[in-house]
């Protein structure tokens, strides 16, 4: 016990750490371990059969495809929004800044019904697509729209602090050495922004693959076509098909953990870049 921590005069280490570990174990770790344990009961064949059914494969393809596209779109626009918020002064900047956090604050079910209404063929946005005979709500495009909504803050909020701390001297030096503004941006600014950009992208992607509430209202939920993986887990569970639900959930959970590790590595990379200069 003494070798495990550095001595300190402050009291309360034992009880607080003990409580933290017990609570973490009971609420998070043991239930998650239970899921993995349950999925082993299927055996290898059963497990593979459950996660490789045509319906499951279609759901995986849609979830990962739409999440990836949404994260790409958010990476680009997130960079623009973060840039504008940090570098430019214009009326409404503070409101814009506050609004970026809306997807964190607005419950997903509320976002879900709002998006479904907006993009329905008679909705404020949907009717403009309807003119060109394009359907957004109740198609795969709807899934994409919802995932763009919930992923938006991640890229903005990871780039913003890095951009704020970027020293003007670097850009001045580049400019005085004859670089054009584009060259300065491309070779001086962008390399610094790349680690947080990738972190934000990974965070948005990780959030998107697990998202449920904001998607299911706009998706249409047709098995094999517009059914996302979290919904498939939900439906299997409701039909008492525990084996399939557990197996698919175990796959998703494993992917989430890999992403979490990746994000931790990216954040360490950002921190290193960030403090070096």
């Amino acid at each position: 016990m003494i070798a495990f921590r550095r001595p300190s005069v402050l009291p309360g280490f034992g009880p607080t750490l003990g409580f933290t570990l017990a609570y973490l174990g009971l609420i998070v770790l043991i239930p998650l371990a239970g899921l993995f344990l349950r999925s082993t009961e299927l055996g290898v064949d059963g497990f593979i059969r459950a996660v490789s059914s045509p319906r499951a494969l279609a759901a995986f393809r849609l979830t990962f495809g739409a999440s990836f596209l949404a994260a790409v779109v958010n990476a680009f626009f997130g960079l623009v929004v973060a840039w504008v918020l940090v570098r430019y002064r214009f009326p409404g900047r503070r409101v814009l800044d506050a609004f970026v956090d809306l997807p964190f604050a607005l419950p997903t079910a509320v976002a879900g019904i709002a998006l479904a209404t907006l993009y329905a063929p008679n909705g404020w946005i949907g009717r403009w697509f309807d003119v060109f005979d394009i359907r957004v709500a109740f198609t795969q495009a709807g899934v994409f729209v919802a995932l763009v909504f919930i992923g938006l803050p991640f890229v903005v909020r990871t780039i913003q602090p890095v951009l704020q701390d970027l020293e003007a001297e670097l850009e001045e030096a580049a400019a005085s050495l004859g670089a054009t503004r584009w060259q300065t941006w491309r070779f001086v600014i962008f390399p610094v922004l790349l680690p947080p950009l990738l972190t934000g992208f990974a965070l948005a992607f990780a959030r998107a693959i697990g998202e449920y509430g904001s998607v299911i209202f706009i998706a249409g939920n047709l098995p094999g076509r517009t059914e996302i993986v979290p919904l498939l887990i939900f439906i299997q569970l409701e039909q008492y098909n525990y084996a399939a639900a557990t197996a698919i959930a175990a796959v998703m959970l494993t992917i989430s953990f890999v992403l979490l590790l990746l994000i931790n590595m990216l954040q360490r990379w950002t921190a290193k870049r960030h403090t070096r200069d």
Binding site: F4, L21, P31, L32
Partner: peptide, 27 residues
């Protein structure tokens, strides 16, 4: 306090954020 395994503990505390809500119910 300073102790071993601190960064692992911080990561574990953040774990629920990377779990899909549906899976959180399922467990």
């Amino acid at each position: 306090f300073e102790f071993y395994g601190k960064s692992l503990l911080i990561t574990l505390i953040d774990l629920p954020f990377s779990v899909s809500p549906v899976i959180a119910g399922l467990i």
